[in-house]
Design a protein around this nucleic acid. Structure first.
Lengths: 184, 184, 184, 184
DNA sequence: GATGAATGAGCCTTCATTCAT
DNA sequence: GATGAATGAAGGCTCATTCAT
């Protein structure tokens, strides 16, 4: 149900997605949705958080069990690319939420910001590790973490499926690593 | 009228923006909007295209009157940053449209893709110039142009006004330039 | 202006006729209509009354200057047919008004009933003359006058222009005259 | 629901009848109407066709089980009078539709013309039977059928409830029968 | 007096939500 | 718990009417 909702929400505007459509696609009665979600908005955010949580969890795992900051970074980027490749709709949903400024029911907005922070902190941590080890030189770690992550978004949007996940990862890493590597 | 609509559309969901609100904010009667736009959707896209056209036009100007590819690139990035800083709503609207996949009345979708292509080609051109001059080394110029442009988006989102336009430009250029500079 | 309005009101529903259309057809500015008529409804009734008054006036003339009741009747029917043939729209408008029951602003409704009464009285008078002269035998003169007049409507609707005014008159008179002629 | 809509549509102009009123009169929610009819227009025509179909069906029955053309005709007229007496609104709706010329979505217009034709053919058939049996003499059977049917309309309009259905039938038959009877 | 751009009251229609089955 | 027919609040849109030019 969440999956079908995700598919729809990521390809159409919120108001263009009808509860009827979701129910039909998910193969359940319309009323059934309301057994699990208070309203359309709640379903929407369930979809959004389902996606980002899952990604964040996996991302955390990649950090562990690897020493070299560059390799860690590459594994993380590779994972983000893979995840988005398999869940193109989630990636679009996240883009949308990321673009928002203040709006939304504070509750959800807050949760979203937390998830995003947690995601960026994972990347930021690796960058800082690299700095500590004397291999990276970053100005604003948080900002650069965000830039790295969004490079994936950018690559996804502009690849239209023409470019393999590996090629994307390579391109992103080439640009980014040289950008943050400490000049010797 | 378009300006007020842009402000509203960029801070709320399409369905949360009421024609009544737009009319009120713009200080015109509701009916007046319909004298100029067939419906809410048309107004929305007028807003979107107004923004991107304006940006693209200015961007084209920056390319001329400058030799050094690095300096050209910096001027372009600086301009995008300034433009988005002055029109925060447009930048959000563009993010939204960029995220979309197929949907929408083909008409508008097509126009959007064209505007985007034109924008990226401007950047791409500079990258290719750099390659010709032997100062840049790029793999997929279009993709890397897109990445550069989206770095601005990323920086905007994650700066929340804390970071000045110049600092943003510097950070972006530092990362990107080193990423594309030909290794000597 | 009234004429164009008549043409439109008789071929479309009241709500389908736009003030814009009337203005355009009549070749005047929309505001100009309001110089002469308080609102759409007033224009509509001006149209309706213009038609029936004109018809009634002419009908009255036909009665005079003829002795024989049958000939009078024939001349009247012939005139109604001619008038409707030249003003097909008026005939439709009258049908509409005739069909109504109570509704409408009492003012107009009252005026309409008066005009209709006056019209039927003209016919009724001839019928009564015939009765006085011993050539007609009628039950309810008013009702039979109405039936005669509506025969024209009926013939108009079902002729679609295939039948000439004279043939219509002949058919109507054949049926009606034999129906009211005193049996010898 | 159709019945209440019929009552309203026959006493007011299309644009004066509000969907709210229909819903309220019918004792259903406004949205419910749209479960069964696509829009106001569709409901309107459903109402119109419901009436004429019902009448036509019954009319067909009257033709059977009777030999004498005059008696058949009288039974048909009597039935039309009764039907209209019981469904005054339908009779007004039919008048309106009959008066129209070209307009309307071809679909509905076509259907209307068919129903009307079928109705007139029933009457026409009896007239032709009479001609075959040598008791009637008609010029244009279709036209005279139409005239007969519309005599009922005429009588309805001008009776205002003062005249009984039987009296109406008698008057109509007296005029019409003598009009078509073959002169001996 | 004529005009037509601007207006906003009003209405049709949609669709999230409910609740009886 | 599941369902989907019924609901009505809400909002997009129309168009008669106004009034500054």
């Amino acid at each position: 149900m969440i999956e079908e909702a995700a598919r729809l929400f990521s390809s159409k505007r919120f108001d263009e997605v009808l509860m009827d459509d979701i129910a039909q696609q998910a193969g359940v009665g319309k009323g059934t949705i309301y057994t699990y979600f208070a309203d359309k908005e709640e379903l929407y955010f369930a979809v959004v958080f389902e996606g980002i949580s899952q990604l964040n969890e996996k991302l955390q795992q990649k950090v562990n069990g690897q020493r070299d900051p560059e390799k860690k970074l590459r594994r993380m980027v590779h994972h983000i690319v893979s995840f988005f490749n398999q869940n193109r709709f989630f990636f679009r949903l996240m883009s949308i939420e990321d673009g928002k400024s203040e709006g939304g029911k504070g509750e959800n907005r807050k949760r979203w910001l937390e998830e995003r922070r947690s995601q960026l902190e994972a990347i930021e941590g690796v960058l800082n590790d690299g700095v500590d080890e004397g291999v990276f030189a970053v100005g604003n770690a948080r900002l650069e973490a965000a830039i790295l992550r969004d490079m994936v978004r950018s690559a996804m949007i502009h690849s239209d499926g023409d470019i393999s996940g590996d090629e994307m990862t390579d391109t992103i890493m080439r640009i980014f690593l040289r950008g943050v590597r400490k000049e010797s």
